[in-house]
């Protein structure tokens, strides 16, 4: 009797979780869903690149569930199940919204529709998983997980969150022509200045995260130089690699010289670095 009740309750809670996940998927994927450059990328971008993006996203979702999810145990199977459920929510959301907004219409080939949905599922699944785990924490009466993190911040987790923030922001901005245009127009000196500005802003975020997490001032507070190397520089490295990967995935480097590749990457890395730094503060 009690077991049946428990399982019914578990099902109900999961359904509530799914509804929440749908909300998260919507918030995270709407900006991209309503950008026509992204619809075009859905059919013309390289199939290998799109397959790679999907295959890279999935382990990231599992890791996200692992690092941000509200389970106290480190059960990888559970994380995989959560990541799959989040992916399902994102795909269903895309399947419903594409025909409704006539982004997928009669006459579109299967390949075209799959491409659009595959692209849309990436930010959607991130949003769904964040909503499943993050908003779920509010329902948990004990905040033990969060406190546990603040006492023992894990360096890989921090780097992962930066990667996620960078990925999300660059996914949103890389499809637009403007990244390439700005990159083409910037003189090398300006690119250099943009790198400095990105680093400074990132460090400001890093510093404020440290400040927030510090309950006991003066007790083992890491020095500025160490913070700068460990978080800002390492984070910016992750940001650059993420921007490079996304731009390559979207075919933005085709027929472009090495200097422009660097310039465009630096341009995209600017918002991506803010995303990376802010992700640590928010999540």
């Amino acid at each position: 009797m009690a077991a049946a009740n428990g399982s019914r309750l578990a099902n109900l809670r999961f359904l509530v979780g799914l509804a929440r996940a749908a909300g998260g998927a919507l918030i995270f994927s709407l900006p991209l869903l309503m950008t026509m450059e992204l619809w075009w990328l859905g059919f013309y971008m390289g199939r290998l690149q799109l397959a790679l993006l999907t295959l890279v996203t999935f382990p990231l979702l599992v890791l996200l569930s692992h690092y941000v999810g509200f389970e106290r145990t480190f059960d990888w199977r559970e994380d995989v199940v959560d990541a799959l459920a989040a992916y399902a929510v994102a795909v269903i959301m895309a399947v419903v919204l594409h025909p409704l907004l006539v982004i997928a219409a009669p006459g579109d080939s299967f390949s075209e529709i799959i491409g659009k949905i595959a692209l849309q599922a990436v930010p959607g699944a991130i949003g769904a998983l964040l909503a499943l785990s993050q908003l779920g924490q509010a329902q948990e009466e004990d905040g033990s997980r969060r406190r546990h993190w603040q006492e023992e911040p894990s360096y890989p987790r921090e780097l992962f969150l930066m990667l996620l923030g960078a990925l999300f922001l660059s996914l949103n901005l890389a499809p637009t022509e403007e990244m390439v245009l700005i990159g083409h127009r910037m003189p090398p000196l300006y690119s250099l200045l943009l790198v400095v500005l990105s680093l400074l802003l990132m460090h400001a975020f890093v510093y404020s995260v440290e400040f927030r997490g510090q309950h006991d001032p003066g007790n083992g507070h890491p020095g500025h130089a160490r913070l700068f190397l460990h978080y800002t520089v390492a984070g910016y490295g992750i940001v650059l690699l993420t921007s490079l990967f996304i731009l390559w995935t979207f075919g933005r480097f085709e027929g472009i010289g090495m200097l422009d590749v660097v310039a465009i990457t630096v341009v995209l890395a600017f918002p991506a670095s803010i995303g990376a730094a802010a992700a640590r503060l928010i999540l």
Binding site: A10, N11, R13, L50, D75, E78, L84
Partner: peptide, 30 residues
């Protein structure tokens, strides 16, 4: 099993749908 909805049937169904979607999408692309 920390999650309050860890072993629910709906969770496995959702995960199954997600797995199917992942396989269809990557399968088609590859």
């Amino acid at each position: 099993h920390g999650s309050p909805w860890a072993q629910s049937a709906t969770e496995w169904i959702a995960a199954g749908v997600g797995l199917a979607a992942l396989l269809v999408i990557t399968g088609t692309l590859l």
